[in-house]
Amino acid sequence: MSRTKPDEIGPPVPFDPELAAALEVVRDYLPRFEGLDSIPAARQVIMAGLDTSGLDRRVETGALSVMERTIPGPAGAPDIDLFIVRPTAAAGPTPALYYTHGGGMILGTARGVSEEFLEWVERFGCTLISVEYRLAPETPHPGPVEDCYAGLVWTAEHTDELNIDPDRIVVFGSSAGGGLAAATTLMARDRRGPKIAAQFLMCPMLDDRNDTASAIQGEGIGTWDRRANQTGWTALLGDARGGPDVSEYAAPARATDLTGLPPTFIDVGAAETFRDEAVAYASRLWRAGVDAELHVFAGGFHGYDALAPHAAVSKDTRDLRVAWLTRFFER
């Protein structure tokens, strides 16, 4: 038997069987992210697949209500739209879930609130505030993250009007949204801004260097591979991507000081591009003395829980998210 050298990167981590089957079925129809030219087509595919039926149904039955607000953007920048969902029955101030949507920094919309998050709103009686930040490459860094931060500041300044509890604002996001949530949390700490009670990062996009073992292993397979990741980061940072001068507010993995951050939840798939940067971020949070929890799900490619929600590993992922949120809100 030959053994690999200690530092050698092995073959790709195998996908979970159910996830592999679901991916096989839709693989040819997923948007391709190969360079900036591919972005308009990918945006169309994602917008065409936007499903608001779960929210529409809950609004019709009167369970949830939707409110849209246009608020001032960062200094010198356009206004920002906030998309706000809350339980109609909420009496007193509710916890707030401040949401930065995903989409590789280059696509997606604040209205893309998944069924899972609507279930949280109902289960925990939360108000969900989703921010329509500007996208790259039209808006490079720091535009997108400054929009996210401005929306957070406005939210924290309008807790009475929104009927939310200022001590229970959770910043959350998935993929690029996870990276933006982490960056917004760093900004809030450094600028002595709003108090963030927790950051909740699902398969977060944290590191523009794009050179971890998990990124290299998964090149050419899965949903958001190393090349797609290169496209997203290049859209946001241009030629600065991967260089020495990238801000931690663009790529939170660049932060040199993670002390003083709020309780953190991180999850990620073991067979995806972001595995190693998510694991590294959690390790560094613990090292900095932060209360953090990390789950790495075997056989998961990027966004598996959205692509194959019926799979056992997707259900376990949702269950563990709810379990952490339950513990957090019951504190």
């Binding site: 195998p14 996908f15 069987p17 159910e18 592999a20 089957a21 679901a22 096989e24 079925v25």
Partner: peptide, 9 residues
């Protein structure tokens, strides 16, 4: 294709 892939894995 879905079932084939499940069996193969």
């Amino acid at each position: 294709a879905y079932f084939d892939e499940l069996s193969q894995h």
